[in-house]
């Protein structure tokens, strides 16, 4: 037990060290690399905190999509480093910021140490109600039954963020393809990876998605893997991003939330409340919602990384 604690302490120190590096390092690119490593470390921490569902999410999003997004941006903005350094605040501001940070940390630490023991928990309540949802993974039950509203709204949040990213397109490029066009050697190493990995990634992504009903996993994690595979193919030049004016794209982007809402309102008739499921049909309906959410999430997550539309498609 003490050995495990020693491992945890070194892990915590490593997390803090990398976080400190991200803040302190001079150039942005180095900070971004640190952030990718940080995401991977957090996945380890989630395992130590017995939260495998969160670890999967962190591994897929923190270690994959966020890193790729930031690396691309940092490489493009390299020219602004000097100007940013000139704006760096003086010693007084830094001192005040440090005092503020330390004060907040200390206050929060007191709060953490003062948390009640035994801790309040909803785990027994969730366990008691789990059987009525038909799913075996309590996290999935929370996401799609007890607090389905949050999940529905989250799908809309992601979509709204995508609209925000699209709104940054120049007017002439509206309806066009996101991101710059890739001209990549079709026989290069990158293309090779993008030919081999995606089919396997589809199997793994769908596997993570499918087991989510009963074991750690789920739609967000699976969708992130699939989105990453699609981006890989795009970046290797083997496919292009779709023009955002395409009707099929728009339909797939909204199908998940719309099916979710439809099943939710159907619940008002068949089960007495919006987002309730009739007795015995809970699991199939939950799976149906998740299946409908998959294409929406895959496309939204990938297009969020791909960025604003920049050019019209080649005829």
């Amino acid at each position: 037990m003490t050995l495990a604690l020693a491992v945890d302490i070194s892990l915590a120190l490593l997390v803090l060290a990398v976080a400190g590096w991200i803040i302190a390092v001079r150039d942005t690119f180095g900070a971004v690399i640190g952030f990718v490593a940080y995401g991977l470390l957090l996945a380890l921490v989630w395992i130590r905190l017995a939260a495998p569902d969160v670890a999967l999410t962190e591994a897929a999003i923190g270690g994959g999509l966020t890193g790729a997004l930031l690396i691309g941006a940092a490489a493009r903005l390299r020219g602004t480093e000097a100007a940013a350094r000139a704006e760096y605040p003086g010693a007084l501001t830094r001192m005040l910021a440090a005092i503020l940070a330390v004060t907040v940390t200390a206050a929060l630490a007191i709060g953490v140490l003062a948390l009640p023991d035994p801790a309040p928990t909803l785990a027994p309540a969730a366990t008691a109600s789990l059987a009525m949802t038909g799913v075996g993974n309590p996290v999935t039950a929370v996401l799609l039954a007890f607090r389905a509203m949050d999940t529905l709204l989250e799908a809309i949040v992601v979509l709204l963020a995508l609209l925000g990213v699209w709104s940054l397109a120049p007017d002439r490029a509206w309806g066009g393809c996101p991101g710059p066009r890739r001209l990549v050697d079709p026989d290069g190493v990158l293309a090779y990876l993008a030919r081999l990995l995606p089919p396997i990634g589809i199997i793994v992504g769908l596997y993570i998605f499918w087991i989510g009903a009963d074991l750690p996993g789920g739609k967000f994690q699976g969708a992130t893997i699939l989105a990453a595979m699609w981006l890989l193919v795009i970046w290797a030049g083997l496919a292009d991003t779709p023009p955002i004016s395409r009707t099929w794209l728009r339909i797939l982007l909204v199908i998940g939330p719309l099916v979710f809402i439809a099943i939710g309102f159907a619940g008002a008739i068949t089960a007495g409340a919006v987002l309730a499921y009739p007795e015995g049909y809970a699991k199939p309906l939950i799976v149906a919602i998740e299946i409908a959410l998959m294409p929406t999430l895959v496309l939204t997550l990938a297009l969020l990384v791909a960025g604003a539309p920049q050019r019209m498609p080649l005829q």
């Binding site: 909803l122 309540a125 109600s129 039954a145 007890f146 509203m149 919006v274 987002l275 309730a276």
Partner: peptide, 13 residues
Amino acid sequence: VYLLGGWAPPLGV
């Protein structure tokens, strides 16, 4: 008041 999904707080919303 409306209890979403018929689940009362604290488990529900």
